[in-house]
Every structure is written in C-alpha cells, then in structure tokens.
Design a protein around this nucleic acid. Structure first.
Lengths: 113, 113
DNA sequence: CACCAACAAGTAGCGTCTCTACGTATGAAC
DNA sequence: GTTCATACGTAGAGACGCTACTTGTTGGTG
C-alpha cells in the first residue's frame, strides 16, 4: 500500500505514532511499518518533509541528540499536537464512516451514530 | 467535510454512485450529498474533471441527452469501471483497516482478518 | 420585461501533498 | 576497504482537489 492514498492522513499517522513517546524520523518509519505488518512502508522523502511541516505547524518539537556518535533528530508531540491528533481522530472516524458507506456498505456504521 | 481528505478515493466514490444506475454530473453531486447526509458536498469543479478522468481511463462512458430542452451528459459504468470499483473497494478496506489501527484502535479489525 | 434562483456543464490556475531520485555521513560486518 | 543498515535531508515532478469564473436554460416574482 503506497502513501498516495494516505494523502491528507499522513500527518495524523505521524502524530499517532509519536503519541506513545518521542522517536526520531527513521524510528517513526519503522514503527509505521511494524505496527501495520509491513503495509505502510514510507520513503524518507515522504516522512522527513512531513515532520518538518508538523514542526512548522507547532504540532511536534524536535531536538538533536547524539547516540553512539550518530546524530538523531528526535521528535516529540506538543500540546498543540495532542489536540491536533484528537481532532484528526474524530475527523478520521467521520471520514471513514462516510466513505465506508459507499465503499463498504453493511460493515460500516452510520456516521451519525 | 471537504474533499481534500478524499484525495485518491474520489474516483471510487463516483464509481460507487454510478453502480446503482446511470446519472448526469449534477445528479451525482446530489446523490453524494444525499447518501452522506450532507457530509459530501463536492463542488462542480471537483466532480466534472474527475468524471472526465474516469472517462479517459475507460471506467465510465458518457452520452448527451436532452431532457426538457436541457443538455445533460449522462455517465454510465463500463465493465472496466465495474472491475475498477471492485478493486477500489478491497483497496479501501485494507486502507481503512490499516489507518484505523493507528487512529481508531479497538474499533477497527485487523487488516489481515 | 427585468431580475433572480436553481439547474447543468465546463475551464483555468493555484496550492498542497507525496513520490522518485539524489546527496551526505557513521558504524559494523566481512 | 567495500558494502550494508542506519540516519538525515533536498530538489523537482506529477497528481489531485479547490476556488473562481463563464455559459446557458427554466421558472418564478414584481
């Protein structure tokens, strides 16, 4: 599954991964891959710019650290990021329920509840 | 809910709406709005070009008809479109299950089943 | 008749987002 | 000393939906 279909939902995924604790970019990619059983295998050229966007938006904060003489930029959720994640979650539920009504009828509950 | 988050799934929605029978562009927009309780209210500038794309791809066929002296371009699913819709449906299930695992844990079944 | 709203189709240009393809560097294995 | 996994990053391209606009018909209001 490529990230093409993710369009607009990638930020939410990144925030969700960082919810469990601070991670550096490469580890985020591995977490996405691991927690999705290999379905989400995003290229660095997708994830790094996305993290920069999130930082510009104030949803994550980054700090350099040196581990084993290797430079890592570790990202962490901000309060704003936590709020954004909550919004994205409810947005996702509405979105998936609405689209599911057309593409996966029967399985999907009505958006209104 | 805007169509920004639809990115990559709009085609599937259009095919799904046409599955129930041929419709003209304006009626497709109304069907989307009606069947989603107003959540999907897509501008013509989004839908008409998308229908053209689907026609170029061979997934729909269009024909002009005059109803009450008014010109309508009616769209209809092709066999290719029906196959594409089936693909999009299974793609949607995998996509929503995968993303749901991160954004809607507990509710979403595992993609693998 | 003039005006306006709803219906109906369409285009142009813009901005956003992800992808491919690079470039750079360290540490470990062989 | 070469290769691989780790780790960060940018540049340019392509796809897609959005805003804003144009054109035209039908029907209602004044």
């Amino acid at each position: 599954m490529n990230a093409q279909s993710l369009h607009g939902h990638l930020d939410a995924l990144l925030l969700a991964v960082l919810e469990r604790g601070a991670l550096h970019g490469y580890a985020i990619i591995e977490a996405l891959r691991g927690r999705s059983d290999g379905r989400l295998d995003l290229p660095t050229g997708t994830v790094y710019p996305a993290l920069r966007r999130l930082e510009r938006a104030g949803h994550v904060a980054s700090a350099w650290s040196t581990v084993n003489g290797r430079e890592r930029r570790t990202y962490e959720l901000t309060d704003s990021g936590r709020r954004a994640l909550a919004d994205q979650r409810s947005g996702w539920r509405e979105f998936s329920a609405t689209v599911g009504r057309f593409l996966d009828p029967g399985t999907t509950p009505t958006p209104a509840g």
